[in-house]
Design a protein around this nucleic acid. Structure first.
Lengths: 339, 339
DNA sequence: ATAGCAAATGATACCGGTAACATTCATAGA
DNA sequence: TCTATGAATGTTACCGGTATCATTTGCTAT
């Protein structure tokens, strides 16, 4: 309500009888100011309702305090978990997260990265290793640590915190094979947009081939994000085309849940008539009936590891860029159990 | 890779043979610079790899370009939808979103708001009308538009974009009554933390009383966020205590889905043996089997309306603070159908 | 008591843009 | 032709902190 000019550090300094520089130090942790002075300055600041202007601080110190992150979709529990892990890991170092979502579109990612660079973030986190050429150049020239996540790019820009999506797919393929399945399908999305999903698909189909199984049973032409709706539709199409299919992997748990319910609606029993596996260890896969077999990608850990990698990179700028290859685990549930 | 000092506007100006001020204008839309000059400046900027420093710009113009928003949980599709609606609505005005999550904790909200204030956002969006006294004071004195969302606070701080959670609860209660139920329960969380959920609970129980039904069948002592796990546990406890319950509302679709599957695991039929309703129109309620009756809170619309309200408030600072009361709709699905 | 050193504080300059006002220039209308 | 007008551009000062180095203060060891 007080519509007067906002108080500045100089105002606080005057009131506390010290120099502005001392105020600056007093309000920052880890600086040497006597307790008495600090108390006096705190009191003066409170009295004036003073709040540090971090824009000014960022400008002056040439340190924005931002870490920028792009994720494909804000509305996805996996990426949200990663964002949360990153936020938590950076919190005590005083960094704030600038979060943007690309909608699974590398052109949008490029725009976002460009916008973020204007804010001079001290590190940049992107999802996956697929970028436009210009975006790649922007990231390379950013002059700050860059972390690619959720993937293991062949030519990393800088740091990496991820896992092999192809291996994850292969792991599920072998699991379904081990459960006795021989007519196995895959439900996914447009690989040009969701390259991580495409990698899982590739790894999955390749594993089928190595097991001498057909890798033709594929419905993967939908636009990401692949949600429950897409999963349900895709299962119907898959079973129309290949009615004898006994098992299917879906690119994510959300589509797996949609597929599960499409199967149940058709009167099929899961897993007796058709086994269904997903990816991502979303809550829904645990509480579905039956529970859905999935891969735990450790979304939260990706975020916290990314935070660790960033802090390490900032404290040792000349260290060799680190690649953290996380191990993902298969969660075998009833949706693929042998009956 | 070019490890030279980052180019500044002055560098671009020198190369283009104009004053820095002209560069500033040329790189901003809606300013009067001749096409020839603008092209020349753009070329010079590209040649130098120049990227505007928005921290400096924010500092100089005293306009941060930020809108700050706190939500209870980043990992919740409803709030994520609101954040998306807000982001989209603010995009073409050039605002960026500073997003933080409170974990359903008003003390954490206070800390977040305080941190955001240091970035001098041009508007602040919070979820709900419950805040610590200090947080309320901070928001009141912020000197920028404040929007409380997802609720209709009795004493709004400033602007509001929300709906009546109590009405939403009452609406579901009447629906269950209309479907013939007379032993009706509620599953929720700790109201001190999730006040919107508490409002739904209050409206629901109050409606039961007005219908001369018992409002005792209540399991609502869990810590938010109330997810599928909590919903499943709570249903078990509810049925142990009140085995003759024929219908239950859950504070959200996630807990409703958990409750649904707990019921099915017990061998109960839904809706024949027990009807279940949720809240929030999450995807899972649509694709569950049976589909779960829910309330569409229009999460995305809350976000886009909030954007509209903010832009209006910024263009007319002296206008009377607006309260947008959105109408929520009941989505009647099979989980509460008459059989 | 005093040198020596670390802790606390101060003085100065500067970060990179933009607001506000001044100036120049081209063009249209009298 | 000359002036009025608006578009294009330039000049100047300043936004609110912090880096850096200088100085003062307080304390310990001799």
């Amino acid at each position: 309500m007080t519509e007067t000019r906002k108080a500045t550090m100089a105002d606080v300094a005057r009131l506390a009888g010290v120099s502005p520089m001392t105020v600056s130090r007093a309000l920052k942790p880890g600086t040497s100011v006597s307790d008495a002075t600090r108390d006096r300055i705190r009191a003066a600041a409170d009295e004036l309702g003073y709040v540090v202007d971090l824009n000014a601080a960022a400008f002056s110190s040439r340190r924005s305090g931002f870490v920028a992150m792009t994720i494909p979709s804000i509305n996805n529990a996996n990426f949200a978990d990663t964002a949360r892990g990153l936020t938590e890991g950076l919190q005590e170092s005083g960094f704030e997260l600038l979060l943007g979502y690309t909608d699974y579109d590398v052109a949008e990612e490029e725009r976002l990265v460009e916008a973020f660079l204007r804010r001079r973030p001290e590190a940049i986190v992107v999802t996956g290793g697929a970028h436009t050429d210009r975006c790649r150049t922007l990231l390379q020239n950013a002059g700050v640590p860059v972390v690619e996540t959720w993937d293991l790019p062949k030519s990393p820009i800088d740091r990496v915190v991820g896992f092999s999506n192809a291996d994850a797919g292969a792991r599920v393929a072998r699991h379904l094979f081990d459960q006795g399945h021989r007519q196995i399908g895959f439900i996914g999305g447009d690989g040009a947009r969701d390259t991580r999903g495409a990698d899982r698909q590739r790894g999955f189909l390749h594993a089928l081939e190595k097991l001498d199984l057909s890798s033709d049973r594929l419905v993967a032409d939908l636009d990401p994000p692949i949600t429950m709706r897409e999963g349900a539709q895709a299962l119907d199409r898959l079973l129309e085309r290949w009615p004898d299919t006994t098992a299917v992997m879906c690119v994510s748990d959300l589509s797996a849940f949609g597929a599960l319910n499409a199967a149940l609606r058709r009167g099929l029993r899961v897993p007796e008539d058709i086994a269904i596996a997903g990816f991502g260890a979303y809550d829904v896969s645990e509480y579905a009936l039956p529970g859905i077999t999935t891969i735990d990608a450790q979304a939260h850990l990706i975020g916290s590891e990314t935070a660790r990698v960033i802090l390490a990179a900032l404290s040792e700028p000349d260290a060799k860029p680190e690649t953290v290859n996380l191990k993902v685990g298969l969660l075998a549930r009833r949706s693929t159990a042998v009956t």
